[in-house]
Design a protein around this nucleic acid. Structure first.
Ligand code: NAD
Ligand code: NAD
Lengths: 226, 226
DNA sequence: TTAATATTGTTAAAAAAATAACATAACCTA
DNA sequence: TAGGTTATGTTATTTTTTTAACAATATTAA
């Protein structure tokens, strides 16, 4: 696809949801302004880094006050495109798919969940959080009649690539993938792998590191080959 | 807490789950070896970076063949501590908590889910995927009698800090947090925020960037202040 | 057995990211 | 209005990360 000229560095993108979350929380405090130093305490990033990140997008702060919380929150919303309305569907109404149907995070980010699809006849026509589950055989027809921006994929791994191919053929441009299989998509499709178990991996690694440091031992990392 | 001497750089840690996932998938292929070039195709990281990452831990490759898939997978398992057994509980048996009870990713990473807690009387004693939901009032007693390594937090945001304080007081050292509120924990507690909606944020931002690039317009990023 | 090929592990160079430093400006107090 | 304080935005510096290059070595084919 090739990076766009004014592409925001990935490393900054990865911090934006963190700023978003804390600014959202600060809304409900009585404070009106927040300094880069306070944001540093909250986020764990250095105040210098925070000022640098924000200055990438513009000049939002006020000398000797800090940043207007409401105002900065609005800016971050605009930068992330949350002010644009986007339609979402979920494919796979199993345990995770159903949980996502109750996710409260859509509206504030500009998303609207408009349908859920499954292939299990027992689930079809079931209503989950006001959304009716429909047969995945309707998928193509539905996509023809409805402008859908993002499809969340919560089918079993074995079905993931086939569904993906159908979604792409039907014109979907962005996929939010929860299956733990690597998907192949054309270059112009946005694919976000949502690795739910990533936190568990990191916790295991950190606990392991701590154990190794306490024991003072080193793992035997050899595998029989010279 | 302070970094340990032989702390693995965060940037490498963040790529380990990706290597893990692809090597796991490669297990079920007929191939025995994989080259850094092939891994680059799969992961999107450069082959040079992959060789560098792996060489941080040891010498696993075989010249002119590449890496023994099974063997490298085992190494990554050891590095991530998946060979150590860990016990997991879930607090909050709502939509997300119940979905996590069906997560198939625990065993392969060395985790065993041993209990689920909720405060809703209607849920207590319900059996989800062979695990009985118990009252959160039993939490302290349970933790006294069972060595629990990680607690997954899937209660509403408003309850999150209180439950966290109870968990910490009861001796839990690692928390896998799904609530979208910033938690305060002592420095020696490992806290992993699992931002489920992160993918949605990134997709929104990317679609927004694409739109801006196509329009050629720039957002008005000002907020009334000079 | 020799030459051609493949692919690692490592070193050197380049690029990106983070930190530190500070000039500047706004605010506050007296 | 002067002097002290606060906190930004930006520049300079340092550190980290990535890429590129390649020597070393195992494998394969001739
Ligand atoms: N449950 C979790 O906590 C969890 C965690 C991490 C990853 N995941 C991944 O998310 C996916 C779903 O997990 P789950 O626990 O909800 O599984 P699940 O089995 O409960 O749900 C899968 C659903 O997909 C439906 N389905 C199957 N094939 C389909 C098709 N071709 N078209 C439409 N629907 C189809 C099934 O009928 C079922 O309802 C899996 O890939 C899993 O690896 C789940
Ligand atoms: N559902 C999603 O897709 C999703 C996505 C992102 C984040 N989250 C977050 O995960 C959390 C749970 O979401 P959910 O959709 O499962 O909500 P939910 O309301 O379905 O479940 C919450 C559960 O926690 C229980 N609970 C409340 N207070 C408790 C306490 N003090 N002790 C023990 N249990 C308690 C409730 O009885 C309920 O069963 C929320 O913080 C939410 O923001 C959910």
């Amino acid at each position: 696809m090739g990076k766009e000229l004014n592409a925001i560095p990935d490393i900054i993108i990865s911090r934006l949801p963190v700023y978003y979350q804390h600014l959202k929380n600060l809304q409900s405090s009585s404070k009106e302004y927040v300094s880069s130093e306070e944001l540093a305490d909250l986020t764990g990033f250095s105040s210098s880094l925070i000022r640098k990140d924000l200055s990438y997008f513009g000049t939002f702060g006020r000398k000797s006050y800090g940043y207007d919380i409401y105002c900065l929150f609005q800016q971050i919303n605009i930068i992330m495109g949350f002010n644009y309305k986007k339609k979402l569907i979920i494919i796979g109404a199993g345990h995770l798919g159903q949980a996502l149907a109750y996710n409260k995070g859509y509206n504030e980010r500009g998303y609207q969940l408009i349908s859920i699809f499954d292939k299990n006849p027992k689930l079809i026509d079931l209503v989950i959080n006001d959304i009716e589950i429909q047969s995945v055989s309707n998928l193509e027809r539905f996509l023809e009649n409805n402008k859908v921006d993002v499809a969340a994929l919560t089918v079993p791994g074995a079905a993931a690539q086939k569904i993906t191919d159908r979604l792409v053929a039907a014109g979907i441009k962005a996929i939010w993938d929860f299956t733990e299989v690597p998907l192949k998509v054309p270059e112009d499709i946005f694919l976000e792998e949502q690795l739910i178990n990533e936190g568990l991996c990191k916790l295991s690694l950190k606990m392991n590191q701590k154990r190794l440091n306490q024991d003072g031992t080193t793992e035997d990392l050899s595998c029989g080959q010279k």
